[in-house]
Amino acid sequence: MERVGRVSIRVWGEYALFSRPEFKVERVSYPVITPSAARGVLEAIFWKPEIRYQIRRIGVLKPGRQVAILRNEIASRQGRTPIIVEHDRQQRTSLVLKDVAYLIEAEIHLRSHATEPVFKYTDQFRRRVERGQYHHTPYLGTREFTAFFAPMNGEAPPALDLEIGTMLFDIAFVEDNKRKELSFKRPGKTKPVKGYAQPLFFEARVENGWLEVPQALYRELRRLEGEDV
């Protein structure tokens, strides 16, 4: 049974914020959407526990321009205790992107517990994109910046070359009973597990309008998360 299928999509938005982790207080965006943010857009449109997305490359149709905006945030992390927003609100400046558009080319991979053929999922994804349907509202880095989407129509990105440097690839959620920093659910499992988050980075470069995503990092991600590689 074929276990890998191809999908593609065009996404755009008025604002985007792909936060660089090295800035702790004020949020500063990467100049281009990260692979993890691109995966988040696809999962917002169509998600099933039997599949996972693997981003192959990202086309930069409109890189946007950097603008500084003042945003309301809360100082405390959401937990079991209710937060009184008026007491916890903070205003912080964020350096965001305005007027962006991207092409996302990706693969749908079946997980080990999947029993249906992969074309069933790629067809469902394409139908949702064509109809403008989604699982939850897709966004560009942060939930307040809504992402709009449509099928790719044969367009190509402009000949843009850009050195980005070290960029966040994705975050592995590693199960570890000795480091019970987080509680999270594994696809195909009913009970949450304990462990920690391990970020993965890569040296990113846009060449001729395309950001190529190193596929070897997906094998490392799956190894850390205990999936079959």
Score class of each variant (00 low, 15 high):
M167H: 01
Q66W: 03
V11F: 13
L110N: 02
A16G: 04
S29W: 06
P187L: 02
A75C: 08
P31I: 04
E175L: 05
E2V: 14
K62S: 07
H87Q: 14
T34S: 10
L160Y: 08
K98E: 15
P157D: 06
L211P: 06
T142P: 05
V67N: 05
R6W: 00
K185A: 13
R80E: 12
V60F: 03
K120D: 12
R27H: 13
T34K: 13
A68P: 00
L17R: 02
F18D: 02
A101F: 07
P117W: 07
R179V: 09
R126Y: 12
E212T: 14
F119N: 13
R126V: 10
F202N: 04
A101D: 06
R111V: 02
L168M: 00
E105F: 15
E116L: 15
P192N: 09
W12A: 08
A68Q: 03
D99M: 04
F149N: 13
R222P: 00
I9A: 05
I84L: 03
Q124T: 11
R179F: 10
E144R: 15
R65H: 06
L103R: 07
L61N: 08
Y53L: 01
Q91M: 12
W12Y: 14
G226R: 01
E225L: 06
A44T: 10
E105G: 09
Y196G: 09
P49S: 13
Q133E: 15
G154I: 09
E22F: 10
S29V: 07
L61P: 10
G141F: 02
V25C: 02
P214N: 03
R65F: 08
E144S: 15
T142S: 15
G79Y: 11
V118Q: 07
G40V: 11
E2Q: 14
V4W: 01
G209V: 13
G226T: 03
G226C: 03
R3C: 03
L162A: 01
E86A: 10
P214S: 02
V100S: 09
I171A: 05
V118E: 07
E116Q: 15
V67M: 08
E26R: 00
P214V: 00
T115V: 13
P138I: 06
R131I: 09
F201N: 08
V28C: 05
Y139D: 08
Y102C: 09
A101Q: 11
E105H: 14
A204E: 05
A16T: 00
D228A: 11
H113M: 07
Y15C: 00
A106M: 01
A75S: 12
A159N: 15
